[in-house]
Design a protein around this nucleic acid. Structure first.
Length: 585
RNA sequence: GGCCCCGUAGCUCAAUCGGAUAGAGCACGGGAUUUCUAAUCCCGCGGUUGCAGGUUCGAGUCCUGCCGGGGUCGCCA
């Protein structure tokens, strides 16, 4: 167990023996007050009408020897630790394989599946997918960090009317061109086909409306739409040429996605395709229909009655017998369970516009008696909006993922050291640019919408990814210089007194495991992003104001220990946020 | 209309089962570099936490009702 957990557990055990009830709540002392930890004694003081000083003595008795000073302000007991305590802590953090900052063993029994980003195959990835990818990857790494086994799963939406539209777009406007011939990434090329279709379709609809049809009628009667539907039916019927084109175009898209995934260092253990899982979903629904769990309406459609759950009625098979989106989801869930029966949690990283959909999925699985329904967690995240509002395909305001990565790379390149080689500068620019985007998308509570201002919001200074990278790089260089001079961290006795800046950094180093734990179980990487920023801010303050290499022993080796532990902690932070880790900037 | 999410400084965001004087970044103003990388640091400016009640030692946080924004609600994915 990490230092933090082990100690607090020990204290709590002895408090229980002393009949202290309720137990004090422990938190970090706010930075405007002296102290490392604050014990909240309000409930305790209220419950036990004893002399407060006596209670404080009882509370502090298991901490004797490590507490240097304490202060009771109203119900808050602020405590600071001795230099010896901190020296031992640094030693532990640096040298112990499990109490240190690698692979905290908090969740070794967990087996987690994280499903992300589950794109459609008719368009390239955009900023919304980037948020999804960053969240999914970070949550995966968080679970790994605390010792869980993780399966990264991607579910590809490779069937449906939208796919038919891009196929028809190609046939009409691009055939027989290939992405190579067009000089484009496959996913962008197919996206162009889709956009071309939509544009022509819009024109047809407008013409029909001009002839007196209503918008709704026009949308259905437009020849292009009719043709797209025919193509979908041909696909479902397994018509050879249609299937061949569908395969080809999907391969173009996958190749394009793969390039982006590799650039972002995400790699999936398992990829599911809706075109394969929807059949299983259909079987589940038909079986449940026979068992009377679902029912068929007069027109032939199949329904689930979720009125008792407060979710109304939900269609599962259209009257023509074809399956809808959720049917496929039932199948995918079942297949996941069959393949990975030991999963303890199955996390779906999906936007909050599907909150209702995910409620339906869980409720349906429960109705079907699937015990794994309770293991499903929806990591719901808000939309990425522009200052002008929602991104719109039709208005061309969608921020493309590849373009954004390129733009950030270019921006970061301008800041790199011109003394370095071009190759080195590009490597740094890529790391810094990506860190800027990733941190920006992760630092906000997932539940909240993000307003993305391309002109201002992505910055390379202040509360950003590069800020954290820079702290890491400087600390690393400092330790290298120390090593060159034969200086090692924590080799001698500890200093008799610590500077408040050192204490402030120690407080945050000490708290790392608690932040990781809480971010993991709450599926909320933003907690680590804020932690990483605050930790680095404190480190920078020390770096700026307190000399390390030029200070006297034992201060020097103690401070080297601080730097080394910071380096380890911030490395862990960058790791779980999936920020690239540059060695130079 | 029903249900869900959100509303905090000019802008973007924090605030750990309800806790101390609501904190950061950006922007703006001032300052720091013979010394470990200035993508840094320090100081200043900036608030009726959407509104009105309620619960209690204590409310940005919980409850009720409004206001504003977004999402979603039987054959799109």
């Amino acid at each position: 167990m990490p230092f933090w957990h082990e100690q607090i557990a020990k204290w709590e055990a002895s408090w229980r023996e002393e009949q202290i009830d309720p137990l004090p709540r422990i938190s970090l002392t706010p930075s405007n007050r002296r102290g490392t930890l604050t014990l909240n004694l309000f409930p305790l003081l209220k419950a036990q009408k004893e002399d407060p000083q006596k209670i404080v003595n009882k509370i502090l008795s298991p901490l004797s020897g490590v507490v240097q000073c304490q202060e009771l302000v109203k119900g808050f007991l602020n405590i600071s630790f001795t230099p010896t305590f901190w020296g031992d802590f640094l030693r532990e953090a640096l040298h112990h394989p499990t109490t240190g900052y690698t692979q905290l063993r908090l969740a070794e029994r967990e087996h987690i599946m994280v499903e992300y980003p589950s794109p459609n195959t008719n368009k390239p990835l955009h900023l919304g997918h980037l948020r999804n990818l960053c969240l999914g990857e970070s949550v995966s790494r968080l679970w790994e960090q605390v010792g869980a086994r993780v399966v990264r799963a991607n579910l590809v939406n490779d069937r449906g009317i939208h796919i038919s539209k891009s196929m028809l777009g190609w046939k009409r406007f691009f055939a027989p061109l290939t992405p190579q011939e067009a000089g484009k990434k496959g996913d962008h090329f197919v996206g162009d086909c889709y956009v071309a279709f939509e544009k022509a379709y819009r024109t047809e609809v407008e013409n029909l409306v001009a002839k007196g049809l209503t918008e709704a009628e026009a949308l259905v009667q437009a020849p292009l739409f009719q043709e797209a539907q025919a193509l979908l039916r041909a696909w479902e019927a397994g018509e050879t040429q249609t299937i061949a084109l569908w395969r080809t175009m999907n391969e173009w898209v996958y190749a394009g996605f793969e390039t982006t995934f590799q650039r972002l260092a995400v790699k999936f253990d398992r990829t599911y395709y809706e075109s394969e899982t929807y059949k299983c979903g259909k079987e589940i629904v038909e079986e449940a229909l026979r068992r009377g769990i679902f029912f068929r309406s007069e027109d032939g459609a199949v329904w689930a009655d979720l009125t008792p759950e407060g979710l109304g009625k939900k269609i599962l098979l259209r009257r023509d017998g074809t399956s809808v989106y959720i049917t496929q989801d039932l199948g995918t869930a079942e297949i996941k369970h069959r393949e990975y029966p030991t999963l303890t949690r199955s996390i779906y990283v999906i936007g909050n516009e599907q909150d209702h959909h995910m409620h339906l999925l869980k409720a349906l699985l429960k109705k079907l008696g699937k015990e794994y329904a309770d293991k499903i967690y929806h990591l719901s995240y808000g939309m990425v909006e522009l200052p002008s509002g929602r991104m719109k395909t039709r208005e061309g305001t969608v921020v493309d993922a590849d373009d954004l990565l390129d733009e950030m790379h270019a921006r970061a390149y301008e800041l790199t050291d011109t003394e370095l080689s071009t190759a080195e500068r590009h490597a740094i620019a890529e790391a810094v640019g990506q860190a800027a985007i990733r941190f920006y998308l992760l630092r906000v509570d997932p539940a909240k919408n993000i307003v993305f201002d391309p002109a201002e919001s992505i910055d390379l200074k202040g509360f950003t990814g590069p800020f954290i990278q820079y702290g890491y790089v400087r600390a690393k260089k400092l330790l290298e210089k120390a090593a060159e001079r034969g200086l090692a961290p924590l080799t001698t006795e500890y200093p008799p007194e610590l500077h408040s800046i050192e204490e402030s950094l120690l407080q945050y180093l000490y708290a790392l495991p608690s932040f990781l734990e809480s971010a993991t179980y709450n599926l909320n990487p933003s907690l680590v992003a804020h932690y990483g920023y605050e930790l680095t801010r404190r480190y920078n303050e020390m770096y700026q104001l307190l000399p390390v290499l030029s200070s006297e022993e034992p201060q020097r080796s103690f401070r080297l220990g601080l730097v080394a532990t910071y380096l380890r902690a911030i490395h862990t932070v960058m790791e779980v946020l999936a920020l690239p880790i540059p060695e130079k900037m």
